[in-house]
Design a protein around this nucleic acid. Structure first.
Lengths: 235, 235
DNA sequence: CAGTATCCCTTATGATACTG
DNA sequence: CAGTATCATAAGGGATACTG
């Protein structure tokens, strides 16, 4: 698939398959549990469908992904070889969260954030029945400003337009603040104390909102004293 | 450095710095102990000096490598952030050695093999004084067929032309066979039994040759039943 | 030893629109 | 839902030669 390195080194042989742009992010999405083309697209919003399609074909040809048509649907699942890339992806994420400095504005994306968060809702912590959480990012462009998460014990849905149901709590904050909570650089309590985040709604719901949302799998990684700067800085 | 993914995901942020061609192999070389430009070149023979230069600049700008001029020399060393990529590189190599199928003829390279082997000589196992090991790959083109390793307790040198010293032992085999020994798919004893490798020289030296050479750091990784085929097959 | 300077050129990728 | 088709551009990278 990728251009060959003409080396017998196992690292080089692995990178021949993995070093092209987006490839390891597709694998990350599959590890995260996405199975369908459009599910993958939601986790990779800036990737063109053409390219996603090509990458899936390449990974299938390489024996890392299996394409399994099931009736009218198509499932993409990792093969045993693909599943064994999890330590590599986790290692990259752990390195990234330790050493990458401030996020650039371009790296913030409400669509992606809500999509990630919806996968990590603690279904055992949410109230019975349906709970609608409304998110507002006042500084963001109107069409990306308001979001709803519909939590039920069975599933979690993301909406970017008003689902019409009663809203249980509203979370108002900056996109950056919620992203930093997600990646573990900030927490709900501190952000509320600092006035960067407000939750409105019934008191006992307000208190429990933070427990409904787990953080990024990398949020708990211990951080070094100083992160990298330079090429990685915001622009 | 690399094109941005516009994602806050730590895996994506890491890959922005690492997903370009050759980048992780440069880091692999630095982890292996190379410090100088031309030392790096020997471990990356198919990489153009221009590109190596650029990658080193990028990695320096990213805070992964430090360029340290020492008198007339220049040392490239990993920063703390760079050193922490070792688990990633090791993970990739372990994955690679488990899942990559047969090596292609293009992946075999005597220059690189001897260079790798010279770094893993067990200095505590070699005889005192100077020991010259002569390697011959009869099937290889003349200018790459014959090699000499000069082992002394202090250092190991690789030569591609006759150094003139007395040869202690001669190892004759195919390039593929010795490469497979290096990566742990074959071993000295089996190869000798099978007639794919012969050692000539004094009996007690012949017997101890295999103990002088450690294998690739990945050689001891347990292998799955079946490796990948397809895109990775030899061509 | 430690790199630069050019030059060319493929091709990877982004963007957009469309289909069964 | 699950992709394909098409197009234009940038630029990543290979090759080669040269410098202090």
């Amino acid at each position: 698939m990728g251009a060959p390195y003409h080396q017998f080194c196992p690292v080089a042989k692995a990178m021949e398959l993995l070093d092209e742009r987006w490839t390891l992010l597709v694998i990350r999405e599959l590890i995260s549990g996405s199975q369908h083309f459009n599910e993958l697209r939601r986790g990779l919003p800036k990737m063109s469908p053409t390219l996603l399609s090509r990458r899936l074909q390449q990974l299938t040809a390489a024996g890392i992904v299996e394409r399994r048509p099931v009736g009218t649907e198509v499932h993409y699942i990792l093969t045993p070889a693909g599943r064994e890339l999890e330590p590599v992806v986790m290692g990259l994420g752990m390195w990234g969260i330790r050493w990458i400095g401030e996020l650039g504005d371009q790296d913030l994306d409400p669509k992606l954030l809500l999509w990630d968060m919806h996968r990590q809702v603690d279904l055992s912590a949410i109230p019975p029945g349906r709970t609608v959480v409304h998110f507002r990012f006042p500084e963001v462009a109107p069409q990306l400003r308001t979001w709803w998460l519909i939590l039920t014990p069975a599933e979690v849905d993301v909406c970017d337009d008003d689902p019409g149901h009663d809203v249980a709590v509203t979370v108002e904050t900056t996109l950056r603040c919620l992203t930093e909570i997600w990646i573990g650089r900030q927490n709900w309590q501190q952000a509320q104390k600092g006035g960067q985040l407000t939750i409105t709604g019934p008191a006992e719901l307000r208190r429990s909102v933070p427990s409904w949302f787990k953080s990024s799998p990398f949020a708990s990684v211990p951080r070094p004293e100083a992160a990298l700067t330079g090429a990685v800085s915001p622009k």
